[in-house]
Nucleic acid binder design. Structure first.
Lengths: 397, 397
DNA sequence: CGGTTGCATGCAATCCTTTGCAGCATCAGT
DNA sequence: ACTGATGCTGCAAAGGATTGCATGCAACCG
């Protein structure tokens, strides 16, 4: 059927062993024969049978990826980065979605165990002991959380919270609310900690508004609490929550950012598509995905635990975040009494006083004059995801 | 290391063959021994080595899934359905993302070939001959397109276009524009064809406004053309394009749906989150994903081509679409001269005259009275994705 | 010139499961 | 009681690649 290593060997006049070595241990065979073997192999279109290889090496050539909900726009970009990077190293990715159900996570990890060489685990609510069990069964890298002595790739929540609080304080906000995510979520706890620190340093009051589901519905549910809290700015657990918040605030006639500034986390693609554009703390998911794959591959090539000189430090990468300022944040102050002011308008956003805010968008308020021409300058103003135009980023401290 | 079939055999006092049969051909072994074997197997936690099995059976237990861009919110829900369904049949899914690059599709299919038993191919722009080559290497099911005599799962574009046109015509629109997607895309051609038919039947004029990239930027780029076309309603190739359109129309001060109604396709999650909510032709991606897996599994269990009585009909499932009416569509007519009417507002949407439009939302315009209580009734009005409240669907014809 | 070293290659075992075939036992029928 | 059929089980052969070990050859040194 398919071309096997014996076919190549026969055609090249060598033994199967030599073919195998020519492919996987190139400098162990004579250059002349190696070239001949490789030429024959490519000519015949030989591709090693992964099952046969796996049977003897005990490796599958697969990486497992466990995540809570692919439908959350936060994940696809990370998944894409992971896939691309894994493929470059000749690994396949087996992805599994837990549907935000922590009870199935461990079961999925177990079923994944036999079929992968290593696991990238994105399970913000998994219990630490389960985490340990998962890591015991296969080399594991955590993403977006830490665990007891386990390799991890995280986003620098502490620094991120500082960015947000500093930015908002610079706009004059002294009362900031936080719409929390799931109580058991690692990043929720982490963000809360960072927020308390940052609020204390900046001298602003922090209102913790409870825990909500990390999606659009959660944002809707949080609205009333935000209103009665009497804050002038609110940070949501993620962009989906923020979107829900913005949506139902608008329905209540509450001006964003005039009466209330809203900030999200994740900087998902939608945040730049809607009106008003959502100010959000961006988490570089692509960088994280690549880092996780690199870390895992390194773990796989490294000798197992117990050997080596002393207990190797468990690797950990903390990725800096990046605040993307758009239109849901503005200086604190009463809603302008101006005649029939539009509900929300980009013009209301004066340049923040924080660092890196030199450029102003310069777009006029909604009832704008007709476009000067019909080609495309408008597109630039709307920050297509690829072009940095119109995105003002605060520099990292 | 791991527990093998021999361990189970030894513990159960039978030969490995019997264990194998007890697991895969249960009614071939004596019930007594079968029970004993199964009990021992589960007790020892035996899981067959997939590599060894694959080596002899020639099957991998994997399904390949090729798609153009996971970051397009249209796909994750389909991917989730595919995964869930495949796992139930004890298959794993190897997903590959082509990054919208048709030139890498064939290469990826080839690299996928040896590692999967069958392929679910979502490649709207792949050339027919490449399609055939892909299908020759492994059993293949096309999704969201057809190809020469190849099994396929599609959405009923023809019926969908009829739904949209009928609905818009019912609102009084006689000039409808279509913002097309990639010229080489199968569904683009299909939609165009359906639109022409439907427009002819309904007696409305159809303006074909060109081809654009199937994303937010494409919508931005299409805006000028839409404006000069002089239409009162426009259908976009997909929701992302529609969102771009809505966004830049708003920036130009063009009232949606007062002056221009906008309809998208896909009904991605975001469309119900933004304001104004996007009217969209929903494509049941979950249904499609499940259907594709079912079809592929059937293909895998069926005898290969050439056998059987005559050429079996190539399976094809056409999934009905479902129009979800929200706030970007309304009756044709000049923008109301009413005092400081908000740019867009749900109240402006009078019930469409189409079928199935009995319920009205009953939400008041934006400057609404304060909420009656502080719990959650607002959430209901905003159609959290799970609850059908607030989604008026036109019944299928 | 003999011995040793080192390199390149081949041999053969091994990974674990499935499955065609053979064997054995039991049972029914005559 | 013998024959034939039936049903369950075991034997052994794949299936393709990797790898420790052995072998053969050449080169080099003494």
């Amino acid at each position: 059927m398919a071309v096997t290593i014996r076919d190549v060997a026969r055609a090249a006049g060598v033994s199967p062993s030599t073919v195998s070595r020519a492919l996987s241990l190139p400098d162990m065979v004579d250059p002349t024969t190696r070239d001949r073997v490789l030429r024959v192999a490519t000519h015949l279109g030989y591709q090693p049978n992964r099952a046969a290889r796996g049977l003897i090496t005990g490796r599958t050539g697969n990486l497992g990826l466990l995540l809570p909900d692919l439908a959350n726009p936060f994940f696809p970009s990370m998944v894409k980065a992971i896939q691309r990077h894994a493929h470059q190293a000749d690994y396949q990715v087996l992805m599994m979605d837990t549907d935000e159900d922590p009870t199935v996570e461990l079961a999925l990890v177990r079923s994944l165990a036999k079929q992968v060489d290593g696991i990238i685990l994105c399970a913000p609510r998994m219990r630490p002991q389960d985490l340990r069990e998962a890591a015991a069964v296969r080399p594991t890298v955590l993403v977006n959380r830490t665990g007891r002595r386990l390799p991890a790739v995280t986003f620098d929540n502490h620094q991120g919270m500082h960015q947000v609080v500093t930015y908002l304080a610079g706009l004059g906000h002294t009362d900031i609310g936080f719409v929390g995510g799931p109580r058991s979520s690692w990043s929720n706890a982490e963000r809360l900690r960072g927020l308390r620190d940052a609020a204390g340093e900046a001298g602003v009051r922090l209102a913790e508004l409870g825990n909500f589901t990390p999606n659009f519905a959660g944002g809707l549910a949080a609205t009333d609490g935000v209103i009665v809290a009497g804050v002038t700015a609110v940070l949501a657990y993620n962009d989906l929550v923020a979107l829900g918040l913005v949506r139902s605030l608008a329905a209540r006639g509450i001006d964003v950012p005039g009466r209330l500034s809203v900030v999200g986390i994740d900087d998902i693609a939608v945040s730049s598509m809607i009106h008003p554009g959502l100010t959000s703390l961006g988490l570089p998911t692509g960088t994280a995905g690549r880092a996780a794959v690199d870390m895992l591959l390194q773990l796989l090539s490294a000798p197992g635990p117990g050997s080596g000189s002393g207990p190797a430090r468990t690797p950990h990468i903390d990725i800096p975040t990046e605040l993307v300022v758009r239109e849901t944040t503005g200086p604190v102050g009463p809603a302008p009494p101006g005649p029939k002011a539009p509900k929300t308008s980009a013009v209301r956003l004066s340049p923040p006083s924080g660092p890196g805010s030199s450029r102003s968008r310069g777009r006029s308020p909604r009832p704008s004059p007709p476009p000067p021409n019909l080609t495309d300058p408008v597109a630039d103003a709307f920050e297509p995801r690829s072009a940095p135009t119109g995105r003002r980023r605060t520099t990292r401290r």
